[in-house]
Every structure is written in C-alpha cells, then in structure tokens.
C-alpha cells in the first residue's frame, strides 16, 4: 500500500539508502503520479546522491511557480554552475534587501565560487550580525567569511 511504501521511504532515507528510496518512490508515483510528497522526496534523494540534473528535471516538470521548492531548485542550479538561472531565481525571490536565509547563503556561496569575494564578504558580514554566537551555524558562517576575506588578499 501507499502508506507502507511511505514508511519504507522514511526508513530508507534515515538509513541514507537513497537509491532504494527512489525505487519505493517510483512505486508510489506509478499509482499516484502527482503525489507532491513523493516528488519532493525524489528531488531530495537525487540531491543527496549528487544527481542535481535529475532533481532539476523533476522540479521543472512537476512543480509550478506557486508550489516550487525554491531551496532545492536554487541548490541544484548552484551545484550545476547555472549561475544565470540562479541569479534569476534569487532576484525573483528577493523583496527589498530581504530574502530567505537559504537563498542568502546560496547567493554568498555563488559569489565565492565566481570569485566575487566582495559580495560574498558583504553577505556573510550581514549573516554574522544576525546569527547567534551560540548557534552551530555561527562558526560555519565565520569560516566562510574568513575564506572570502583571505581570497581577496
């Protein structure tokens, strides 16, 4: 049954068995081709397997602008070095100086990858001001901030 198959998916992704999880997900999608949870799980499974184009294909085929998985799409574009498309997505999802944290991280990472270190530094500086020193992510942000600063020298 679908319920049993979703239980299998949950267990398999907890075991990091993403290829097996994809097989269960395909069984679900054979009877329910539009199941958004199953499609979302497929996207994340492909990303965990490093198959970013497969993930992107599902996103483009099955998710409209309305229910789009923005973090997932942006992440795939980043890993595939599709920077023009990523910039487009980032622009569309920015209101004023604000966008979601995940997209700001991707913007900073893309800037670093494309050697626009000043932009990277600027974003990490702002993220550091907003982050709590006790958060796990604080030291990661600081590491990236320092990497971008070092790259400028």
């Amino acid at each position: 049954t679908i319920t049993q198959l979703f239980k299998d998916v949950e267990r398999l992704v907890n075991q990091e068995e993403y290829t097996k999880a994809l097989r269960s997900l395909d069984k679900i999608l054979q009877s329910n081709p539009e199941d958004k949870d199953a499609l979302h799980c497929k996207v994340v499974s492909y990303i965990r397997l490093g198959k970013y184009q497969n993930a992107l294909d599902i996103l483009h085929k099955n998710f409209s602008d309305f229910d789009k998985l923005k973090s997932e799409e942006a992440y795939c574009l980043y890993r595939l070095n599709k920077f023009d498309e990523l910039l487009n997505l980032l622009r569309k999802n920015k209101s004023g100086n604000n966008s979601e944290l995940n997209l700001r991280h991707l913007e900073a990472q893309m800037a670093y990858k494309t050697e626009d270190y000043n932009t990277s530094i600027e974003i990490y500086y702002a993220l550091l001001q907003e982050a709590n020193k006790n958060d796990d992510v604080y030291n990661d942000i600081l590491t990236n901030f320092n990497a971008a600063k070092a790259a400028l020298l």
Binding site: V13, D37, V44, E72, N102, H105, V137, D140, T143, A147
Partner: peptide, 21 residues
C-alpha cells in the same frame, strides 16, 4: 584553498509531512 562550508546544503531536506503519510 581555505576551508569553505556548503551551508546551503543544510536547507535542503525531506518534507516534514513524510512521517504522516
């Protein structure tokens, strides 16, 4: 090359609804 973390990866995750399906 200095250490640089892929922080954005942490924002990619399975749907929270998975356990309720």
């Amino acid at each position: 090359k200095p250490l640089f973390f892929d922080i954005a990866f942490n924002y990619v995750d399975f749907p929270s609804t998975l356990s309720q399906r």
